[in-house]
């Protein structure tokens, strides 16, 4: 770490985070220069398709990448402490205690051979010197708090005896048992039915308010981020392509990829008469990210950048009031496209 680095005054700040994996086929740049800030009590939604680097980012913040096969550089500041240059033992001490994670599939994310209670007790006792009986009481209390009926009995059940929704609740109880200040939820509701998803989203919103934690929610589902997030970060090819408040992203999106995502999603609340506006092509392979703007091969407006699309990586530049976009198109041209071509079609959808 260079000496001139100034400590961050934000609760969580990522500065130019890069997570690269050397493989036989080449260097996989899963995360390539990601920066953002997040305060306590706020929710950041990270949106992206498969291979955008969103999950790798979350594991990177928790220091869960094996340093043998992942090259991590940049800075991760958590409450004044830099984590990338810290020892693994220091970061381990923070995991579960000050920062915790909820995973996508609670069935595979819990150990099948230990009871739910045991797994929560274990998580609590790593960071607290208490007897098993005390930890068990705490586990039961946590299970009750996340809305599991009869927690005193269910505590001795195995994960396979829980329903999908109950398992995700138990997973949340496990993540929250040490009262973490940063909670990362990686696709927390993707494996769940829609009525259960709604329950879990409500629960996460309530608990975040109670715990006053900073929450990062990682998902491909724009609906989920719209429900929960204060700020939204759109990732593509390992980079942030657009960042802003939820209102920025949904009401005045700036990046053609964001337009594409919005145009790709059929709307539940509107009677559509138009065809969907999909993005052409497929998400890039991270081994072979297109040169210049990673999105240019799929962008309908790449020909309006005067050849810069494939030549230069665009900067992430501020549009106004914290709303940032990584695009070669001049701001006025982007606005013109949005107002005349995109917005009317989206409204009609």
């Amino acid at each position: 770490m260079s000496a001139e680095t100034t400590p961050s005054d934000a609760f969580l700040e990522l500065r130019d985070l890069r997570i690269h994996f050397p493989t036989d086929d080449g260097l996989v740049k899963s995360v390539d220069g990601l920066s953002f800030r997040l305060e306590r009590g706020k929710t950041l939604g990270i949106v992206g398709e498969s291979g955008s680097g969103k999950s790798v980012t979350s594991l990177g913040i928790l220091g869960l990448h094996n340093r043998k096969n992942a090259r991590v550089s940049g800075e991760i500041w958590l409450d004044g402490a830099e984590l990338v240059s810290s020892t693994q033992e220091y970061v381990r001490g923070l995991r579960g205690k000050r920062m915790a994670m909820i995973f996508q599939d609670p069935l595979s994310a819990m150990h099948p051979y230990y009871t739910v209670g045991n797994q929560i007790i274990e998580a609590y006792r790593v960071h607290h010197r208490v007897s098993k009986a005390v930890a068990r009481k705490h586990a039961i209390e946590m299970l009750g708090r996340v809305g599991i009926p009869n927690p005193a009995q269910r505590v001795d059940d195995y994960p396979h005896q829980f329903s999908g929704g109950m398992r995700q609740r138990a997973m949340i109880a496990m993540a929250l048992c040490c009262d973490p200040e940063l909670l990362i939820a990686d696709e927390p509701t993707t494996a769940l039915d829609v009525t259960v998803q709604a329950q879990i989203l409500d629960l996460m919103r309530d608990l975040q308010r109670d715990f006053n934690a900073a929450l990062i929610i990682i998902t491909h589902d724009l609906g989920v981020v719209a429900e929960l997030s204060d700020d939204i970060l759109v990732m593509y090819g390992g980079k942030c392509v657009e960042y802003g408040t939820a209102e920025n992203i949904f009401e005045t999106p700036e990046h053609p990829y964001t337009w594409g995502l919005l145009g790709s999603m059929p709307r539940l609340d509107r009677e559509s008469t138009e065809r969907l506006l999909p993005i052409k092509g497929s998400p890039p392979s991270l081994i072979n990210i297109p040169p210049g703007c990673a999105f240019h091969p799929r962008c309908s407006y790449a020909d309006r950048t005067g050849g810069k699309g494939s030549a230069e990586v665009p900067e992430l530049s501020e549009v106004r009031g914290g709303h940032k976009v990584r695009c070669h198109l001049p701001a006025n041209e982007r606005h013109a496209i949005w107002e005349s071509e995109i917005k009317p079609v989206l409204e009609a959808q």
Binding site: A198, G223, A226, E227, E251, R267, D269
Partner: peptide
């Protein structure tokens, strides 16, 4: 129960 990808009317 379906989350709507829009902030208006949130």
């Amino acid at each position: 129960a379906v989350p709507i990808p829009d902030t208006r009317g949130r």
